[in-house]
């Protein structure tokens, strides 16, 4: 299953305005891992995620998904393997109904309308949103929108799930449901987030990014429990870890 391996080698990226967002990022994520990318605002998390499916291409270095380097040519194929859930569901749910939206990807990948609709229904079922199939997306709650965006990605049967701030704007119940959902996926998961409690519950490994560089990497408990490290990068030690590992 080598195509589930996600690897970044010395990735650099500079925005057209001159902002140097990534300054040499390297990591390797293997099959089935759940990895969190944490760091303060402007650390380069979103920029990094956009490299994983070829939305952005590195100025220097490379990103590999399995055996393929991500390039302009391989991007369409890479995007079948790497499903991306965006931060604002309103950017992702652009079709008029929930079902149409979830079927958007399968239709693009050449499925016949019936097969695409079936795939979409199955994905909605998976995230518990079957009841909303015919509704317009903007009428859903934030949590429902998030679930539908995830369904839209699941419908493509990706090997790797990449998510940008999946728990932002969710109320506690919506967030709880999201975490249960994420835990139930067997995909390789890469999650950029400020929600460190979610990291503790869902992820096994953490990559701490700041100023476009990897500042720390390791098992969740080890990295997030390092109070000086966390404070130095605009983060704080999660509460749940304090209770688990009282000093």
């Amino acid at each position: 299953m080598s195509h589930h391996i996600v690897e970044a080698r010395d990735v650099h990226y500079t925005y057209p305005g001159g902002h140097e967002a990534l300054r040499g990022v390297s990591f390797r994520i293997t099959h089935g891992e759940a990895v969190a990318v944490v760091g303060p605002n402007g650390a380069g998390k979103s920029t990094l995620l956009q490299h994983l499916n070829g939305t952005l291409l590195p100025a220097r270095g490379e990103v590999r998904i399995g055996d393929d380097p991500v390039t302009r040519d391989t991007a369409p194929r890479i995007r079948r393997a790497v499903g991306m859930v965006f931060q604002d569901p309103d950017d992702q749910l652009f079709m008029p109904t929930v079902l149409e939206d979830v079927a958007f990807g399968p239709l693009n990948h050449g499925l016949a309308p019936e097969a695409a609709a079936e795939r979409a229904r199955a994905a909605l079922e998976r995230v518990g949103m079957s009841h909303a199939a015919d509704q317009p997306p903007y009428r859903l709650s934030a949590g429902e929108k998030r679930a539908v965006s995830i369904a839209g990605v699941l419908a493509l049967s990706p090997d790797v799930l990449v998510m940008d701030e999946p728990s932002s704007n969710l109320d506690p119940r919506g967030r709880r449901r999201l975490m249960e959902l994420l835990k139930s996926f067997e995909h390789t998961k890469i999650i950029a987030t400020h929600d460190l409690e979610l990291v503790v519950e869902v992820c096994s490994r953490v990559i701490l990014l700041d100023g476009g560089l990897v500042k720390a990497e390791g098992p969740v408990v080890q990295v997030l429990n390092d109070e000086p490290l966390m404070l130095a990068h605009g983060l704080e030690r999660p509460h749940s870890l304090r209770h688990r590992h009282p000093h």
């Binding site: 079948r80 950017d91 652009f94 149409e100 990807g105 309308p113």
Partner: peptide
């Protein structure tokens, strides 16, 4: 960003609808 999200799900310039 919408364009990025569309590309991420295989958009190739053609919007296909289920047409139920």
């Amino acid at each position: 960003r919408i364009y990025g999200a569309m590309l991420a799900r295989g958009f190739d310039g053609e919007i296909r609808i289920l047409g139920t």
